[in-house]
Amino acid sequence: MPIPNNTDHSPGSLRRSYKRYLKERVIELLLFLAAFLSVFITFAIIYLLISESLVFFEHVSVWDFLTDTQWTPLFDDAHYGILPLVSGTAISSLVALVIALPFGTIIAIYLSEFAPFTVREIAKPFLELLGGIPTVVYGYFALLFVTPLLQTILPDLPGFSLLSAGLVMGIMIIPYVSSMTEDAMRSVPMHLREGSYAIGATRFQTAIKVVMPASLSGIAAAYILGISRAVGETMVVAIAAGMQPNLVWNPMEPAATITTYIVQVSLGDLPHGSVGYQTIFAAGLTLLLLTLVFNILGHLLRKRYREVY
């Protein structure tokens, strides 16, 4: 069969179908917009918090906001010091972390290095279920079960306290910390463990001296993301810690956190555009900045251990 020996290799019938190409691009654009929505949400959050806060800072100086030791925006003698809210947040988070980090770590070590297969297969979903219980239910548990229980040991404990809110918050965060810590530990390759066992190390020695150091950045990430969870937690403290902004360092007292203040204002009926309305955005901005620092740090650390293995 004679083949025309010309050098014109034009695409002919193989040419790109314009209609099909266009349809594919339109679909791609729609999908991109959906993905880009997340960036838009972030910008919307930042824009909203900053713009409302700017109005707030026209009334209140940044210096007062950061140094005043009273937070009484709804009183006639209004003070706008964020410190009482920060202290409440810090204390309740601290109590939570004292519970969540050790317990979370011990459970993670057990599940990753000691537990038989069946125990792990049952315990992991169970912990996941615990983590899925609504926070308002944990709040109920803190106020109506843990506080009365603690009062039998500590008769001076008031009905609302940072202690019981923090304790329950800690219990709530355990599954979160343990599952991330365990993920980090299990990502340590088996041959590292085998190397340790081969020279006569026990399970515990292997866990402490080989697995944990090897997954350190992952464990640190779990801790930091746990802190961020505690700082941003709202309902448990709103229900069990009371809502008075007190500059306290004693967990046995009631106090407000940044989050509970926002809840408190939202429960009332503040007119849109008033200084009171803007305070919750200033408080929200503070909270966002705090959690953002922890989140970014946590994700950087997580990324690092994922890159290693």
Binding site: A35, F36, S38, V39, I41, T42, A44, I45, L48, L49, E52, L225, S228, V231, G232, E233, T234, T259, I262, V263, S266, I280, F281, G284, L287, L288, T291, L292, F294, N295, I296, G298, H299
Partner: peptide
């Protein structure tokens, strides 16, 4: 976008409330 999605997952839920309010 990817960093953003991970960060959004860590934003406290009450902040979403403020966004929704505004």
């Amino acid at each position: 976008i990817e960093i953003n999605v991970t960060n959004l997952a860590g934003v406290p839920s009450i902040i979403y409330g403020l966004l929704a309010l505004g």
